[in-house]
């Protein structure tokens, strides 16, 4: 373990209002009252199953969006 010696000029925060978007894919999959039902079905899948697989799309789009919006320039 060596102690840091030099300061530098790059940003010193990860803060961004866009980060709050990450709350959506964390909270939605935990709300069982939204998806704990059988109808409507899709391709024979009860709602419970296809909706939770669809949450994966929400998760991927949100993290991708936040990554792109908060990427450090340069």
């Amino acid at each position: 373990m060596s102690a840091p010696e030099r300061e530098r000029s790059t940003p010193v925060t990860d803060r961004s209002p866009w980060n709050w978007l990450l709350v959506v894919p964390i909270v939605v999959p935990l709300c069982t009252f939204i998806y704990n039902r059988g109808e409507p079905t899709l391709f024979g899948f009860p709602f419970f199953y296809w909706s939770q697989l669809a949450f994966i799309v929400i998760g991927v789009s949100t993290t991708t969006l936040v990554y792109q919006l908060t990427k450090r320039r340069g």
Partner: peptide, 10 residues
């Protein structure tokens, strides 16, 4: 499934 969806944004 919900477990491995929420973990990455977390």
């Amino acid at each position: 499934v919900p477990y491995t969806v929420i973990v990455y944004p977390m």
